[in-house]
Simulated assay, not measured.
Amino acid sequence: MTESRQAGARTIRMEVARFRPGEDDAPVMQGYDVPVLPDWAVLDGLNHIKDRLDGSLSYRWSCRMGVCGSCGMTVNGEPRLTCGTFLTEYGEGPVRIEPLKGFPVIRDLVVDIDGFLAKLSSVRPWLIRQGEEPPLTAEYAQTPEQLEAYKQYSMCINCLLCYSACPVYVLDPDFLGPAAIALAQRYNLDSRDMGDRFDVLSQDDAVWGCTFVGECTKVCPKHVDPAEAIQRYKLTAALRSVLPWSRR
């Protein structure tokens, strides 16, 4: 069924960045003609290339449902999830696929995210409890209002589109970045959390490094609004400087 559908479909040109560090001097664009079906995302086009045209192409993907965040790439200059970006959006083409900006390239469209993972770990994105712990069968009950306080920031899928879109991060790789700060806020605003992330967040390369361009929020596929999270914590940090006993 799939082959018959492809046989009658028009094609679109996909120009894909190819790069092997240590072997290639610079990335080059390689063109492939792929079928355009109404329900085909850019990721389907890449899978067609991998399966039918060039098995050497390297890229990341997993769920195809906009949940795992692993298929983020630069599509015609914009950071996008390729599983949710459809070929029909680009008319007659071409569709240019490149790795996310601001990250070292491992191969082709695969980028090195170790730096981001270290930043994420530094904000301790988990519930921090102090003192005696209740039994494992106990629950930390929350009201709907308490859940709503942080729910938006909990939707982050670590797709890194916000980092690729952020002009501060592209110029300064030491910048803590939108997703890490938004996830820190997710726990800061959780009524069950007892941690203190002030020393990590209130730094020149953390919230104070943000110039509030807002591109991180614009490209976020889950509407997390990391720009808002950063600005909210700027206010918290400013109040904390004046009122040291205030933590939230």
Rank of each mutant, 00 (worst) to 15 (best):
V16L: 09
A9G: 07
G84W: 06
Y163S: 01
R13S: 08
K222Y: 02
E89P: 02
P38T: 03
Q30Y: 02
D33P: 05
T85R: 07
R240C: 05
T143R: 11
E139W: 14
T217R: 04
D174G: 11
C71R: 05
M1I: 05
R240P: 05
A238F: 14
P167L: 08
E89S: 10
S70Y: 04
R18N: 00
V170M: 06
S202F: 10
P79L: 02
P79Y: 05
S56Q: 11
A9Q: 05
L136P: 15
M194A: 09
A26N: 09
V28Y: 02
L160D: 00
L147D: 15
A180P: 05
C210A: 06
G91E: 04
G31R: 10
L120Y: 14
V170F: 12
M29L: 15
S121Y: 12
I157V: 11
I106G: 11
D205I: 11
L189C: 01
G195P: 02
V123S: 03
V170R: 15
E78I: 13
E92D: 09
D190S: 09
A238M: 13
M65C: 10
V75H: 03
K101R: 15
F103Y: 06
M14D: 02
A149M: 13
L235W: 13
A180K: 13
L37N: 00
T82Q: 09
Y150H: 09
G22K: 03
Y169A: 02
A180D: 09
E23C: 05
D108L: 04
A227S: 10
R247V: 06
W245A: 14
P167G: 08
L81Q: 01
P104R: 13
G102I: 03
R186Q: 08
D44E: 07
I157C: 13
G84I: 01
V105F: 05
G93S: 08
E23I: 14
R124K: 12
T85C: 06
I230W: 00
E139L: 12
K222M: 08
S121Q: 14
F212M: 13
D172G: 00
R20V: 09
I113W: 13
R20K: 15
G55N: 13
G115T: 02
Q203L: 02
A182C: 08
V110K: 12
P27M: 06
T88W: 02
A118W: 04
A179D: 00
L239Y: 08
H48P: 01
T85A: 01
I157H: 01
H223G: 14
F86R: 04
Q6S: 11
G55T: 02
P178G: 09
T137D: 14
P244T: 05
V42H: 03
G195F: 07
Y150M: 12
E215F: 13
E148K: 14
A141P: 07
D205F: 12
N188I: 13
V207I: 08
M155T: 14
R240H: 15
V16Y: 01
T143Y: 12
V200S: 06
Q130C: 12
Y187I: 03
D199S: 15
D24Q: 00
R107F: 07
M194D: 05
W40V: 00
E132H: 11
P134D: 04
A9S: 14
C71A: 04
G177S: 04
T236A: 00
V207C: 00
Q146E: 15
Y169C: 09
R124A: 12
S4C: 04
P144Y: 10
S4L: 08
V36Y: 00
V207S: 00
C83Y: 07
L117F: 09
E3K: 06
S246A: 11
R186Y: 09
N158R: 12
D193K: 01
H48N: 04
